[in-house]
């Protein structure tokens, strides 16, 4: 017991625990007009601190989303080439039947790429120097009026893409191709379905950004909402292009 009490004694010696030992403490570094962002260790570290944090967060989320699709892709490629030995005839059978994609997917792809462009416009508007300056000077909220129409356009294009995907699935159904029909169709529906779900998440993010804009929340909040949903949206666009190329050219 004596050992443990000696370890504990430190707390008693310093009735009022101090930060630091006996040496002089660090002299405070004073910046101009309180904008020495470097010296705000526990709080904000610059006007874009929050934005960068959210960007990092969404970037990491995207990493994990991409991994889901990489896992599915590797399964896709392996499954494509594997077969089984027929126990009766002894033949090696590869049962993968290449799937002819519905043509509407080309249209959908273009819609999604265009929506990414309009989203980029929306994103740039909330950061545009002259508009941001006006807002700082208290002259209204011009970034809202500049970005909201683009956000709306993106939402419309995104919905059009999702509706187009539904049409693509319906076309396959009418051809008698369902989820369980063939491994190729299983993977088609899995990949496009999982992408659609993630894109729907992107639509929710866009609506959030739009709501924040319509409600005229503080500029920083609007910037973050638009910026972060834009990056997510671009990534979903890129993911779609990847999936489309995979399904179209690796059959």
């Amino acid at each position: 017991m004596s050992k443990s009490s000696s370890t504990i004694s430190h707390g008693t010696k310093e009735a009022e625990p101090k930060l630091g030992g006996r040496g002089p403490s660090v002299p405070p570094i004073v910046g101009w007009g309180g904008d020495d962002w470097d010296n705000r260790p526990q709080g904000r570290r610059g006007p874009r601190e929050r934005l960068h944090r959210y960007r990092l967060g969404i970037g990491l989320a995207l990493v994990s989303i991409f991994i889901i699709f990489i896992a599915l892709t590797s399964a896709y490629i392996v499954r494509m080439g594997t077969g089984h030995v027929d126990t009766i005839t002894g033949d090696y059978i590869v049962d993968w039947k290449p799937l002819t994609l519905p043509g509407i997917l080309w249209v959908n792809t273009i819609l999604l790429i265009v929506s990414s462009v309009s989203m980029e416009f929306a994103r740039r508007q909330v950061f545009r120097e002259p508009l941001v300056t006006e807002e700082w000077l208290g002259m209204g909220t011009p970034t809202r009026t500049a970005s909201l129409p683009w956000l709306g356009t993106t939402l419309v294009l995104g919905s059009a893409f999702l509706i187009g995907q539904v049409f693509a699935w319906r076309e396959l159904y009418s051809r008698g191709v369902f989820l369980a029909t063939n491994p190729s169709s299983s993977f088609f529906f899995m990949l496009t379905g999982a992408h659609a779900i993630h894109l729907t998440g992107g639509m929710v993010a866009l609506m959030w950004a739009a709501t924040v804009g319509i409600m005229a929340r503080p500029l920083e909040t609007r910037q973050i909402a638009t910026d972060v949903s834009a990056w997510y949206w671009h990534a979903m666009g890129a993911l779609w292009v990847y999936i489309f190329i995979l399904l179209r050219f690796v059959r």
């Binding site: 430190h10 630091g20 030992g21 006996r22 040496g23 002089p24």
Partner: peptide, 17 residues
């Protein structure tokens, strides 16, 4: 030598320790 009775410095202690 730097005037501390303790056998450790905390990370936030003065840099002179």
């Amino acid at each position: 030598s730097s005037g501390s009775q303790r056998d450790f410095v905390m990370q936030s202690d003065s840099p002179f320790l």
